[in-house]
Amino acid sequence: MGRYVIRRLLQMVPVFIGTTFLIFVMVYAIGDPIAAMFGDRTPDPATAAAIRESLHLNDPLWSQYLQYMAGIFQGDFGTSFNGTPVVELMGNAFPNTIQLTLVAFAIELVVGLTLGVIAGLRRGRLVDTGVLIFTLLVISIPTFVTGYVLQYFIGVKLGWAAPAVSIDVTLDQLLLPGIVLAGVSLAYVSRLTRTSIAENLRSDYIRTATAKGLPRRRVVTVHLMRNSLIPVVTFLGTDIGGLMAGAVVTERIFNIQGVGYQLYQGILRQNSPTVVGFVTILVVVFLAANLLVDLLYAVLDPRIRYA
């Protein structure tokens, strides 16, 4: 297990370098950020030259990338164009996004799995059809629609929850955005679980377990669930990264100053250090989540062994 983890960690290094380089090239290929800084005005040549020099924009791209990477390994992600260090932005943004992600993830896990298991066990019945229709609805409505609709009715009209999250983010305020963010993934989780459960319900080991007289509860929770969860865990693992990066829409609607918002603003303002910095961290999150998923396989299915 240990050797496997080390091998995987080593594999991450080229992936990390490759992805960050691609992002770096893409962000800097958008164009010269200087012109946008001056609004509807031609930049003063002396000032533009001084800014260009301070951002190393005159150096070749590979040299800029090396300087940037050297900075990262010393914990310096550069400074956004308004003078705030990107590390400070991350310090503000990531706690908010992680909280939101956890809330959404918890909702997704509890509701999604429950619906999936119930539908799977009662395949073809009314409950199953109900879950199918519900998930179809959730998948087909875009996030920003559910976001604005729930914000208006639950937040503004009924006043049950704050329509916009306050500066000091609290968990109860994150419930509504969490539901919106979890929506689509929740539908996928319940569908995956349903199929997997329904399939495994007919397998030999379930029949054996039932035949040896185990109570149904135990058959379902220990034997059936554990074996049915592998595809779901794969999905959930990659979804953690997806939730963190994909909260762009939800975070803007509900005023959560997290990663999605910083990325959106960074792109809009062509703030390259912010964009590259945040995406770099997201790459790490994705890589870590993937590793975690692979390790979880071994936990769920004793037949899988890593050596």
Binding site: A164, R252, I253, N255
Partner: peptide, 19 residues
């Protein structure tokens, strides 16, 4: 002065009496 992520979010807060 409170930073909002989006003008719609601020407008919702205004309607809800939080701004």
């Amino acid at each position: 002065l409170q930073v909002f992520t989006d003008s719609n979010a601020a407008y919702a807060a205004l309607q809800a009496g939080n701004l």
